[in-house]
Design a protein around this nucleic acid. Structure first.
Lengths: 151, 151
DNA sequence: TGAAACTCTGTAGCCGCTCCAGGGTCAAGG
DNA sequence: CCTTGACCCTGGAGCGGCTACAGAGTTTCA
């Protein structure tokens, strides 16, 4: 199977497949005499596994760990549970902040429905009010956990 | 006000403040004779505005646009409404996929609660089953919109 | 006086891709 | 036989929004 066929079979972009190989997630396949990558069914399965994990937003580094576990079937699986638990916690935390966000944006949106001059725009007023530290309809305490990476 | 004080006053990291300046979001301040940045209250307000928008996960490019609008108070504000609407749509779409995600991870997590060998681990089995295209408890149709940028 | 805390510039790294340039390879059609 | 177009290759840059250095100068306090 050439890379384009693997791509079509899995729905994964050709560039992404090569990227996974570079990152060591997908084993480097054999090559045809012309240098083209030649994939087998094991690659197909592995790639499907990776994509399934990615659909669950598991980071590539953790997928690597899962693959390592899968290769040692006699090991303890506690770490797998833990990994999924952590992923679940991450998702729940994010969900919580997204819900707050939706509410805030919704409140903000209500401030302006008509077309008028920017100077009268309730949305902009509200955003500027926040800059003065005044109470504002849209904004609770969501300044933390905005998605940026903090150490 | 020096950069450290501005940072303390707003809770924005010093490096981030300099980053906003480089990106053109925050006007370059005057300099003291020693080369240190000297900020005034206008910078403080503007930075608070930016952070408030970022807390709403408005992209920097859109914040730039909002700032441009604010500078021309006689313009029409329809575009502001539109910008917030789009942001709201983005958040709602993301919220939807996150909810599905939580459900899937929750299902997956149920597959394994005890410590036993990896070969028996329901989680790993489930993930591998997906690789074979079998039906799996955790996975609906969330392969699209996983956060990666697609064109 | 000297050490700690601050500031400066410039650059590289993070994640997970995505896209591009500049080439080689191959099958089908004229 | 030659061209066209689809495919494949490598290597490198770019995205967003920071974050983290290195290596230098400056200020502040004991």
């Amino acid at each position: 199977m050439r890379i384009g066929e693997l791509s079509a079979a899995t729905g994964v972009d050709v560039e992404t497949i090569r990227y996974y190989e570079r990152e060591g997630l997908l084993a480097a396949p054999a090559r045809q005499t012309n240098g083209y990558r030649a994939y087998g069914t094991s690659h197909l399965e592995r790639l499907a596994f990776i994509r399934h994990c990615r659909a669950l937003e598991i980071p590539l580094a953790d997928i690597q760990r899962l693959l390592d576990f899968a290769a040692r079937p006699t090991a303890e699986c506690g770490d797998i549970d833990h990994l999924i638990d952590e992923q679940l916690l991450k998702v729940r935390a994010r969900l919580k902040s997204m819900r707050a966000l939706e509410k805030q944006l919704g409140e903000l949106r209500k401030r302006c429905n008509a077309h008028h001059a920017v100077g009268e725009c309730g949305i902009l007023h509200e955003l500027v009010a926040a800059a003065h530290g005044e109470a504002c309809a849209c904004h609770g305490d969501a300044l933390s956990s905005t998605g940026g990476k903090r150490k």
